[in-house]
Computed example of a mutant assay.
Amino acid sequence: MKILIALTAMFFAFNSFSKMITKEVRYKMGDTYYKSQLVFSDKVPTNAPLVLMVPNWRGMTEGSLTKAKKVAANKYIVMLADVYGENVRPKNNDEAKVAATKMRSDVPLLRKATNKAIDILKEEGKKLKANQENIAAIGFCFGGGAVLESARSGKNLKAVVSFHGNLNTPDPKDAKNIKASVLVLNGAIDPAVPKEQIADFEKEMNEAKVDWQFVNFSGAVHSFTNPEANRKGRSEYHPVAAKRSFIMMNNFFDEVFN
């Protein structure tokens, strides 16, 4: 918790000359209501890119909102996406595991919920005069897998970034639908992403001729961008890998968004 407080303090000190605006966005898909959070700076330029952010398995937490603000800075309009539904707010890891497992076991629903959030982000972006062509989706852990599935569904995205996310998918042939450039940021010793999964992902991307990059961070395991992760050797914050990963994401966006 102390690390999270320090990270938050440094972030707001860095952005002391701008005000971060947060707007709750409620919408419906089928019979389920969702409640996402739109985040942007009052200094964000006209024609700014749009970035959907799917959080880790804990969903819509204060920590995820803080991370969304860090991603937005003064450059992007970010929507922290609720893909569970507004009545599902895990209070601990056990509840998060149940919620995430349910979604991962129904990939069509996961894709649909993620893609719906992208459509809502575009609608909100129009009101802010954002660039409707420069759209990215990023995700962390469970969210990393979610945005990769959105790309595999053929969603019209410029860029997709997965931070320590799962790489496996029910049908690797769906990669032929990917329109986005893909950046995967992975912990080199992450026990949740075995070498076999990485090899299968590389084969999947190559066979589909996707524009993709894969980066392994030495010494990093799962959840390396999460200041609250403290399960040694399994799910653990790695400040160096975290810092480098966000720099790589921004450089990637600069290239793809031109």
Score class of each variant (00 low, 15 high):
N251C: 06
V51I: 15
V193M: 08
K97M: 12
D82Q: 05
N166E: 14
Q132S: 07
R58K: 12
L65P: 05
T8S: 02
A6L: 11
E204M: 15
E236M: 05
L4R: 10
K97L: 11
P170H: 11
K23H: 06
F142G: 02
K43L: 13
L50F: 03
I5G: 01
N186M: 10
D254P: 02
A199F: 13
K176L: 09
K173F: 09
A188P: 09
V44L: 04
L121M: 13
A175L: 12
A99N: 08
V221L: 03
T66G: 03
Y84C: 07
I178Q: 10
K176E: 14
I135C: 07
E228A: 03
S245R: 12
D106H: 06
R104G: 01
K195Y: 12
A192K: 13
D211C: 00
A68V: 03
E62V: 01
L157M: 05
D82R: 03
M248R: 12
N166G: 14
M79I: 05
L121Q: 04
Y76R: 04
E86T: 06
A73V: 02
K23C: 00
I5A: 09
K232Q: 08
A229Y: 06
S41W: 03
K2E: 13
L128R: 09
D106E: 10
A13L: 15
G154V: 09
F217K: 01
G187F: 06
I135P: 02
V83K: 04
L183V: 10
S223W: 00
P49M: 02
K243D: 11
L148D: 03
L80R: 05
E133W: 03
Q213L: 06
R89N: 04
R234K: 13
N92R: 12
F140Y: 15
F40I: 00
F246N: 04
R231S: 09
A151W: 15
D211Q: 12
V256H: 11
P172A: 11
V161N: 07
Y34E: 10
L52T: 02
K2G: 04
D200G: 10
K70S: 03
N186Q: 15
I3S: 05
C141P: 08
N166R: 14
A81I: 06
M249Q: 13
F253S: 02
N250S: 13
K70I: 05
D200I: 14
L4G: 04
V98D: 12
V44G: 04
F142R: 07
A188L: 04
R234V: 13
V78E: 05
Q132A: 11
N47S: 15
K23P: 01
H222I: 00
V182N: 02
K127P: 06
K2W: 07
Y84D: 01
I189M: 09
A208E: 11
E95Q: 13
F214T: 05
K126Q: 14
P239L: 07
A99F: 09
V256N: 08
V51E: 03
M103E: 04
A136K: 05
V98G: 06
N56Y: 15
E86F: 01
I138F: 01
I3N: 04
A6P: 01
H164I: 02
K28S: 11
T61Q: 09
F140V: 05
K75G: 00
V147E: 08
D200L: 13
A81N: 07
N92M: 11
S181E: 15
I178C: 05
N258R: 14
K91D: 06
V161K: 09
I138W: 02
S105H: 10
G85N: 07
N226W: 03
A48F: 01
L80E: 05
G85V: 11
E123M: 10
